[in-house]
Amino acid sequence: MSHSHTFAVTVTAITQVTPLIKHFVLKAADGAQMPSFSGGSHVVVVMKGATRVYRNPYSLLSSPNDLSAYEIAVRRADQSRGGSVFMHDHVTVGMTLQIAHPVNLFQLDKLALKHVLFAGGVGITAIAAQLEDLKMGAVPYELHYSVRAPDHAAFADRLLARHGDRVRIYHDSAEHRIDIEGLVAAQPLGTHVYVCGPTPMIGRVLASARAAGWAESHIHWEQFSAPPVGDPFDVFLKKSNVKVSVLPDQSLLEAIEDAGVDAPYLCRGGVCGECKCRVLEVDGVLVHNDHYLSPEEKASGTLIMPCVSRAHGKNLVLDL
């Protein structure tokens, strides 16, 4: 399966919610209700820039029970490929964008006896809609949300208003940190833990849960990697018989798409495995940035995830 079908949405409101994060409200361009989705889903937004097309995944943070609009939040990343900067600098109210149908790679476990959620920074966007699903149910839940400083607490007021004392906010600037190890260790049997945030936070939650003897099936995290910038390199697509040059601020997948080759994808963040591709030849090193391939697969040099990973070297041939 390759390019998802997209549909047109109109940007109906834009709000700067923190110094780095803008919040966008999207409504169907034809006035219809938005498609139903589940908490934890993301959509891929297609942005037509002046010289190239960006496709970035953003979590849906609006309530699955309100399908009048979708809401996303975009953190500005200046040192990146340009999709978030495009959203910040070029997208205006009234503009039409294309988005794909929602995909959920971070879903709540329906058998959990309790849900404990950890969010850091813009990671709250993946968790906010999950909280709405949980609010409709009868299973206890609690959110621990860590931000740099009070003016970075995007959506804190809204979360507190919706979920009351089920939400706790922590400010790094006040040396007010989450006791992740203590919280995880104190949970009753049958609890599921979810985390979305910076890499060290995800690492601490995973390590705490594993140290406390939790089953892997009860530990959930989402870490979409933005495709990192890097050195330019060339790739030859054998089946398509096309040579492609990957620019420093372009992902391998984007370069393949720009060359007119229809490559499969789903998350565009190194998570789902849909774009996994066989490496036929490599003279140099593969720079793996995904969370999907096993360490052994990465070391083998025979597989790559073009959505986030790159190569250093003279020659790369892919089975595409």
Binding site: H5, S36, F37, H101, V103, L266, C272
Partner: peptide, 11 residues
Amino acid sequence: LKFLLNLRINE
């Protein structure tokens, strides 16, 4: 199974 895990809404 691998195919179905990535099956999308509306498709």
